[in-house]
């Protein structure tokens, strides 16, 4: 879908819903929201719904950055300590790599 061809109220509707859905532990939806509506929020000529869209885009950005920080720090912690944690780490793993400790 080419978002530039969508009417403005539909844009707001979509942007709002993407923001809401992101609360279901779906940070990637927020990230998509930011990328998708970035131009509408900041680059395009002003229109009625732009302010609201801008708000959702900013909050989505904050949310996804927050998540990214959490995820990256967890992944780094887990990957560096996986072998050391032994059984606990195995229990947390979906797939245990073949041929490694």
């Amino acid at each position: 879908m080419d978002i530039t061809r969508v009417p403005n109220e539909k844009k707001l509707y979509l942007c709002q819903w993407y923001f809401r859905v992101g609360f279901l532990f779906l940070p990637f939806v927020w990230l998509i929201n930011v990328i998708w509506f970035f131009n509408s929020a900041f680059k395009q000529a002003p229109f009625d719904e732009q302010k609201a869209i801008k708000k959702y885009v900013i909050f989505s950005a904050i949310g996804s950055i927050f998540w990214m920080v959490i995820l990256i720090s967890w992944i780094v912690t887990f990957q560096t300590n996986r072998i050391e944690w032994g059984e606990f780490a195995d229990d947390l793993s979906f797939i245990i790599p073949l041929g490694s400790k």
């Binding site: 059984e87 195995d90 979906f94 797939i95 245990i96 041929g99 490694s100 400790k101």
Partner: peptide
């Protein structure tokens, strides 16, 4: 890899898939 304890434990573990 590692030792028998680790690989036996992992073999007993019914994984996600």
């Amino acid at each position: 890899a590692g030792n028998s304890e680790v690989c036996i434990r992992r073999s007993k573990f019914a994984g996600f898939l």
